[in-house]
Simulated scan of single mutants.
Amino acid sequence: MSATESNPAPSSTPASLSIGELSERTGVPTSALRYYDELGLVRPAAREAGRRRYATSAVRDVSVILFFREIGFSLAEIGRFLGGERQGRREMIDHKLVELAERQHRIEVARAALDHGRQCPASDPLKCSRFWLIIEGRQRGLPLEESHARVH
C-alpha cells in the first residue's frame, strides 16, 4: 500500500489552495497574505478547521496586487482601485502619473546634486562652497531644485 493510499487526501476541494500553497505560487509570505485578507484585498474562499482556503483565482489576484505595488501604488490605493468604478480608476491613474512624474523630477535633481558631489573640485562635498549655498537656499525655504539651480 502506497503512502497516498494509506493517507487519504484532505477534504478540501482540489480547486482550493492553503495559504502556504498560495504563498509558494506567488512568492508572497503568508504574513503578507494574512494582511491582504485583513485589508480585504484577497479573501479566502472558505475556511476549513479554521484555516484559510483560497480559490485558485487568488494567484491571479495576488499577482495584480504585486503588479500595482511594483508600479508605485500603496496597498490602500490598490484597495480603492480594485473596489472603484471605471471613472474613479482613470482618475487614480492620472493622479499616479502626476505623482510619478514629480518623483522622477526629484530623483533627477538629486542625481545632479550627487553627481556634482562626486565630481566637485573641492574633493570633499562638505568643503564645497556650492554645497553650502544649496543648503543655505534650503534653509531659506527654497525647494531643492530652485536652490540647486541658483547655485549652478
Score class of each variant (00 low, 15 high):
G83A: 14
E85R: 15
R43M: 13
E99R: 15
L144E: 00
R111C: 13
F131G: 04
Q104K: 13
E21P: 02
A58L: 13
A15N: 14
I78M: 00
A45F: 01
S31F: 10
S74G: 05
L114Q: 06
R86A: 07
K127Q: 06
V28G: 06
R47I: 07
E136I: 05
Q139A: 12
V62L: 05
R130E: 02
Y36C: 12
R25W: 02
H152Y: 13
P10R: 15
E38N: 02
V64Q: 06
G27D: 13
E108L: 09
S57R: 05
S2D: 09
R89W: 06
V98F: 00
R80M: 08
E145V: 00
A149S: 09
D124Q: 05
T30K: 15
E48N: 05
L33H: 01
D124C: 01
A3N: 10
I71R: 07
D94I: 03
F68W: 14
E85N: 12
H105T: 03
E77M: 01
L100E: 08
P14G: 06
R51W: 02
E108K: 02
V64A: 03
F73Y: 12
R43G: 08
R43Q: 05
I134R: 00
S63T: 14
V109C: 06
R150T: 03
E99K: 15
P44T: 12
W132E: 01
E99V: 10
D115R: 12
G20A: 08
R138S: 02
P14L: 13
A3H: 10
L100K: 12
G83D: 05
P8R: 12
E70C: 09
R80Y: 11
R86Q: 12
D124H: 10
A46L: 11
S16N: 02
P125M: 12
G137N: 09
R53I: 02
E38S: 04
I78E: 06
P143S: 09
L82I: 07
C128A: 07
W132P: 03
E24C: 05
S16W: 00
A32D: 01
R52C: 02
S57H: 07
I78H: 04
R69T: 00
Y54L: 11
R111I: 14
R69Y: 00
F131C: 00
A15M: 12
L142M: 10
R150V: 02
A46I: 03
G79E: 01
E70Y: 08
Q119I: 00
I78S: 00
G137M: 12
I65A: 03
G27A: 03
C128D: 10
W132F: 10
G40Y: 04
S123W: 04
P10V: 11
W132L: 11
R130A: 14
